[in-house]
């Protein structure tokens, strides 16, 4: 009654999530917070990859890797938010397109 879920399905899911994240970063012209969310989405897709493989191959390494990624992602987000705050203090907005003082 259900298709059995294989690794291929999950890899497809994660790829879709990756593309969503990429498209979000590229097309989003307004809010930096949304970009941070897209970055998290990409990390999530990678995590799904690792966990699923770990499950299907009965190998623990992927799980361990995922925990490391989660921890690092938290630190990354903290830095990201701090930078966004700083940016806001200096410029009064958090529109990504206003970050174009340096170019050329």
């Amino acid at each position: 009654m259900f298709y059995s879920i294989t690794l291929t399905h999950i890899l497809t899911l994660s790829s879709v999530l990756l593309v969503l994240g990429l498209v979000g970063i590229v097309l989003n012209r307004r809010n930096i917070i949304a970009i941070l969310m897209c970055l998290e989405l990409i990390l999530l897709s990678a995590n799904i990859n690792l966990v699923a493989t770990s499950h299907f191959r009965a190998d623990l390494a992927g799980h361990i890797f995922t925990f490391f990624i989660l921890t690092v992602a938290a630190a990354e987000l903290a830095i990201g938010l701090a930078i966004v705050t700083l940016f806001f203090r200096n410029r009064g907005d958090i529109e990504i397109d206003s970050a174009d003082r340096m170019r050329g």
Binding site: L22, I96, R103
Partner: peptide
Amino acid sequence: LRQTQTGHVAHYAFAMV
């Protein structure tokens, strides 16, 4: 080439992708 360096992060990310 200099003009392709627009200063917009989105463009940089787009180039990478």
